[in-house]
Design a protein around this nucleic acid. Structure first.
Length: 595
RNA sequence: CGGGGCGUGGCUCAGCCUGGUAGAGCGCUCGGUUCGGGACCGAGAGGUCGGAGGUUCAAAUCCUCUCGCCCCGACCA
């Protein structure tokens, strides 16, 4: 490819609306341009890289028996209504109507559509297992698109689905996928951790996320260096010291607390209590749906005063309360001020669960057995002290509701948890029979009994791999592509194309590489050396052959290794061979299994 | 949706507070000099100042509405 005629619109300055490093570099190096919030055009350089990532994914999926499909991105509402997700997905789903007024949506993921095929065509256990996948565009009307390609409204996802006869089959399929994912990220040059994760709107029993540690990430991962425990903080547990409560005989006593609105206020109020001796009472609404009916159930969440609520955990607890008789939880939200007063008879700041029977109470495990606690009295400007939670509060469910904090104890060993930002680049789920039951996908067993297919679902964000690679591999000068996903392997840069000798040599090297199948970009532009070198660094091509007049007179060119930032002089005649060798080595380094 | 910020040549921004007929740097075109880390000189092209309405003799500037984009909190690959 000749640079002079190839579209790489590099930018000298950082674009104004880019914040994170990958976003800046993707724009500056001429890989992407924005069309609208969270919607990007991939320019030729990006497209080459994306195709390579896709190909790596494809190879690893095929290696575990995956069969590639290509399903529609435009879906009728029916399958989504059958699974219940037409309402669960809420505003995150792009919806539209056709000319006849029929409801359609743009696919966010394809469980329903693959299941729709499976239920029509799969009849017998003999046909299982099946491993189906596609690499396709997904649409999500994100609340807040941001950070370049990291959170967008249109993106490419590799989504795979497995269909097994039973749980142990699913376990095997899941493990196959997990290993394939490790190979994919290894080959793409990403450092990652596998963490326990919440299943969220996907449903199902178990899930693992593949996370890349980077400050550009939006998730928090709690990990233990001692035993290797790692979990998304939506799911992570921790060990905390017990608190000695003293006298068990005290009875609840109401006392006036004018002006006290927060946990913090009460810690300094005379006769108040320190945060760890308070009960925090939060009013939430569990929204559930059954077909097109929607139901809102108020619930109380109780935590120790100094513990932050984890909404993902509350959501799971609320689901256990409301998921019955066909109702299914769609979301939880904090109650509005008016709702709180209506249900509790007091305003936020004076709320408590003592004596509350109308709202189900979900209490955090850290409160179990606690006595002499202080909490709101459900009367404005009054609190209660001497509260013994197990005696005085009608707890409907004890569970873990708390978000872990850096420095707390590891739940599995004596170690200490560290919490760090991370980016989710893949997520694998054991779905079980959620979709096969709701959509009626079943097969006959060897015994002739009808049984729902046991499913798994496995996703990779293709552009997130690209962005994560840049987050991980860059310097002040620009991108440093891992060679496996680099748009080109080598750039040939004659520093003065008006010098006929240099030009002729560069031409020859370029053509030799081209005909040998080397992915070479030839910077034949009539630009100053500085421009060419800076552009090559910015775009991040792993190797550069620099041909300058001075060394050329000695029969030498410069071989530059972008990642090592090291240059060496090599004989002109050895260029082809040397480059081939270095490319081969670079590939080998990434393609050698690490996990 | 709540909070904050920004929309002015292709890009980065100044001008706005205190209304007076639109600027700089980079990029682009042409000519010349230069040529190993984003050169220099000269000459050019290029802007409904996001949009609509209003105030005014006069609006990029003041007022109202609206659209878009970015950032911070509730969703996910």
């Amino acid at each position: 490819m000749r640079w002079s005629n190839y579209f790489i619109p590099t930018l000298r300055e950082d674009p104004a609306d880019a914040e994170v490093i990958s976003h800046k570099l993707l724009l500056r190096a001429g890989l992407i341009r924005q069309l609208a919030a969270g919607i990007y055009s991939y320019l030729p350089v990006a497209q080459r890289s994306v195709l390579k990532i896709s190909q790596i994914i494809r190879e690893e999926m095929n290696a575990i028996g995956g069969q590639e499909f290509f399903l529609p991105a435009l879906h009728p509402a029916e399958p989504w209504q059958e699974s219940g997700r037409w309402s669960v997905m809420g505003d995150n789903m792009f919806r539209l109507k056709d000319r006849k007024g029929g409801d359609y949506c743009l696919g966010m993921t394809h469980e329903e559509i693959f299941t729709e095929i499976a239920r029509r065509e799969l009849r017998s256990y003999k046909q299982l297992p099946q491993v189906w996948y596609q690499i396709q565009t997904k649409f999500r009307d994100e609340l807040r698109p941001k950070s370049g390609l990291l959170r967008v409204r249109q993106f490419t996802m590799k989504d795979a689905y497995t269909f097994d006869i039973d749980a142990s089959g699913l376990d095997r399929s899941f493990e196959d996928q997990r290993r394939a994912y490790c190979r994919i990220y290894d080959r793409c040059g990403l450092d990652y951790v596998i963490v326990d994760a919440d299943t969220g709107a996907m449903g199902g029993s178990a899930s693992n996320e593949f996370m890349v540690y980077t400050d550009a990430g939006e998730d928090l991962v709690a990990s233990c260096a001692q035993c290797g425990y790692a979990a998304n903080t939506e799911k992570a547990a921790s060990r905390i010291p017990e608190i000695e409560d003293g006298d068990a005989t005290l009875e609840p006593e109401k006392f006036p607390t004018p002006g006290v609105r927060t946990i913090e206020d009460l810690t300094t109020f005379p006769g108040g209590a320190e945060a760890s001796r308070q009960i925090k009472t939060l009013v939430y609404v569990a929204v559930a749906n059954k077909g097109n009916d929607v139901q809102a159930t108020p619930v109380l969440a109780l935590l120790r005063g100094d513990h932050p609520l984890n909404e993902a955990k509350l959501s799971n607890a609320a689901a256990r309360l409301v998921n019955r008789d066909g109702w299914e939880l769609t979301s939880v939200r904090a109650a509005h001020a008016e709702e709180i007063f209506e249900w509790m008879g007091a305003n936020a700041g004076s709320l408590g669960a003592v004596g509350v029977t109308k709202l189900p109470v979900i209490a955090d495990e850290a409160l179990r057995g606690r006595r002499n606690m202080t909490t709101g009295a459900n009367e404005d400007d009054h609190h209660l002290r001497g509260v013994n939670i197990e005696r005085d509060v009608a707890v409907a469910q004890w569970t873990d509701l708390r978000t872990v904090i850096e420095g707390e104890g590891c739940p599995r060993c004596e170690g200490t948890l560290r919490v760090a930002k991370a980016l989710e680049v893949g997520h694998i789920f054991k779905l079980g029979t959620k979709y096969s039951v709701s959509m009626g996908a079943s097969v006959l067993t060897a015994e002739g009994k009808e049984t729902p297919i046991v499913m798994g679902s496995y996703g990779i964000g293709v552009e997130r791999i690209l962005a994560a690679a840049i987050e991980l591999h860059h310097d002040e000068a620009g991108i440093i592509f891992p060679i496996t996903i680099a748009p080109f392997h080598v750039v040939v840069s004659p520093l003065n194309v008006r010098d006929p000798e240099l030009k002729a040599t560069a031409d020859r090297i370029y053509r030799e590489m081209l005909s040998a199948g080397v992915e070479v970009l030839y910077d034949d532009r009539d630009e100053r050396a500085g421009v060419k070198l800076n552009d090559a660094d910015l775009v991040g091509i792993p190797f550069r052959i620099t041909i300058g007049a001075k060394k050329f007179k000695e029969g030498k060119v410069e071989f530059y290794d972008r990642a090592a930032r090291r240059a060496e002089d090599i004989a002109v005649d050895a260029t082809f061979e040397h480059t081939g060798l270095r490319i081969e080595q670079a590939f080998k380094r990434l393609n050698t299994p690490k996990h």
